[in-house]
Design a protein around this nucleic acid. Sequence first.
DNA 1: CCAAACTTTCAGTAATTACTGAATAAACCA
DNA 2: TGGTTTATTCAGTAATTACTGAAAGTTTGG
Lengths: 195, 195
Amino acid sequence: MVLNILIVILFLRLSEFSVTSESMSNEDDFTKAKDDFIASWGALGTSWGISRTMAQIHALLMVTPDPMSTDEVMEELHISRGNAHTNLKDLVGWGLIRIIVKKGERKEFFEAEKDVWKTFTIVLKERKRREIEPAINVLQDCSARTKNCKTVEGKAFNDQMKDLEDFARFASSMGEKIALLSYGPAMKIAAKVFR
Amino acid sequence: MVLNILIVILFLRLSEFSVTSESMSNEDDFTKAKDDFIASWGALGTSWGISRTMAQIHALLMVTPDPMSTDEVMEELHISRGNAHTNLKDLVGWGLIRIIVKKGERKEFFEAEKDVWKTFTIVLKERKRREIEPAINVLQDCSARTKNCKTVEGKAFNDQMKDLEDFARFASSMGEKIALLSYGPAMKIAAKVFR
DNA sequence: CCAAACTTTCAGTAATTACTGAATAAACCA
DNA sequence: TGGTTTATTCAGTAATTACTGAAAGTTTGG
């Protein structure tokens, strides 16, 4: 009995150092890497202006092959039902995850878009809608209201508004065009232009 | 006397409706538009993940031809010295504004980069450095640590990490290349590609 | 129509982030 | 050097944002 325990302890110690020799270690690498990815993605999220939890849920779903229920997300990330619910629905609103209904199951499941290019184009479109378009409205308004200004200051302001508006419109249209491309063509263009 | 007052009142009323007839109205349009721009830019800023005050200061300096001192910024935006100081220095750190020293004056003045394309390339470079590069590090690490995983889940995770890393590197290098262009060439490329 | 399963909302609270104002430090000048 | 101007820091506080947990709402199957 004591010998068995010793063997188990030895086995556990060894497994900390062996990377390729047996299955438990691989499993463990995966689980740890997954948890690290979720944690790091959450931290990064805050620097992109999205909440930690939302980024974590997105990360979790991106690396989970099967759709997950709200309860599974809650359990995995140790968050409340309300929090999980709100953020899942926000992610659906962004189009980054979708609702899956399984037959025979009453609850909703969620799965992330896993294709990286598709995810990118979704973010592009949403940011255009949420960030660039409101800016264009502001700039257009400020430009229009100072069109007839005669003072040097007024003219300079009007010019600056017009420059900003032009650029915002350009960025908006570029975003739109890029989002229409699929991965292959996009790479071709990039390769051609920046060869 | 009463007649004078009546005339003044009439004049003031009229001036609310006349847009091009006299100088005070233009001046006023400009001041109001400027204040609206600063307020709106501040509000937009929060949706881009930067603080309201920082966006407001940037907006103010973008539309002010002459360099401003900390005190002028404080007064214009009704903010404290500490707040103004910290945000001005952060903007300098981003490279979006620069410090100007006037001869004979001991205090520092600040002026914004007003060229829209230059501002854009600065933001591109900084976001690459602050947002994409840390992400690449995380992805690279997670990918390396699961290289030898044998399970289906582990392999799927590893693939996803690699895809994300590849894309992040691609985005990083595109950002770099775009930031190297100046406005003219950038427009030419855009026109050629998306004609 | 009821009860169970599940979803949504939201008031209260926690955590985070931003700001103030005053003290301290640094730079400069006579 | 001491006095003056300007810059910086930071403890305390305010404002904002995120989260919880429970109650209310909805849908579905019997």
